[in-house]
Design a protein around this nucleic acid. Structure first.
Lengths: 119, 119
DNA sequence: TTGCAATACTTAAGTTTCTTATGTATGTTT
DNA sequence: AAACATACATAAGAAACTTAAGTATTGCAA
């Protein structure tokens, strides 16, 4: 079994939006810092989303109408909670399906598994 | 079942070296154009490696000592056949294992599958 | 026989997406 | 009170790809 503390960053590229949209779909609403910690916990530290990558991505998702924001103050400190819009839910499904199909294709290509079905 | 003609390019980023090294591992030796066609055929056109991406990657792999070159002339037209060096074979194995581990982690994170084993 | 498509390689410019680094500010723990 | 964690923002740079243009040979069809 292959063991590593963290993936080369190349692999994670292109999956950030998919991860964020999926977590929001599963958890209803989350704030940015929470997302970084959740991903770190769920993956035993193998995937660590940096804030420099996450926050700009969240801003882009908002501009594109995929997520909405609610600000909440915990004492004096602001938290920005993000929730999927209807469009965001559609995009989340699409991204997840696309990724599932992609890894199926890659598994076949890398000879890790029989050819995926065409059904 | 999700159907698409081609993946958004983001997903493919970071997997190109893995694909190239794996194909060379499986096929012994290949030339650049052959790699692009093989990937297109094997994936029913879902993954199309552009020459602008492939050739620089091959040059980098050569600089890093992962692959060796043999030039052959088919008539007047040159073909550059690439083969894995010993180091390239090690890297190929590592890349494949890393990718397999990555998709296992991602499947869990995207709730597509139970948590991967730690064995 | 000419013109188009396929084969086969190269490389430069531009874009996207991430990393690295820095900045601001509050809350908690030792 | 120092250090660490929480919580956001953003700018500069790097990496990996796309797009595009170029060179040249070969094969096929009209």
């Amino acid at each position: 079994m292959y063991v590593c503390s963290m993936y080369t960053s190349e692999l994670i590229k292109g999956t950030l939006k998919t991860i964020v949209l999926t977590l929001l779909k599963e958890n209803g609403r989350m704030y940015g810092y929470e997302i970084t910690q959740r991903v770190k916990d769920l993956t035993d530290g193998k995937i660590q989303i940096t804030e420099g990558a996450l926050y700009p991505t969240l801003h882009t998702l908002e501009k594109n109408g995929e997520v909405g924001i609610e600000e909440e103050y915990m004492g004096k400190r602001v938290r920005k909670y993000y929730t999927l819009t209807e469009q965001g839910q559609v995009t989340a499904r699409e991204k997840i399906n696309e990724f599932a199909d992609f890894i199926s294709t890659m598994k076949f290509l890398l000879d890790l598994q029989p050819k995926p079905g065409h059904a």
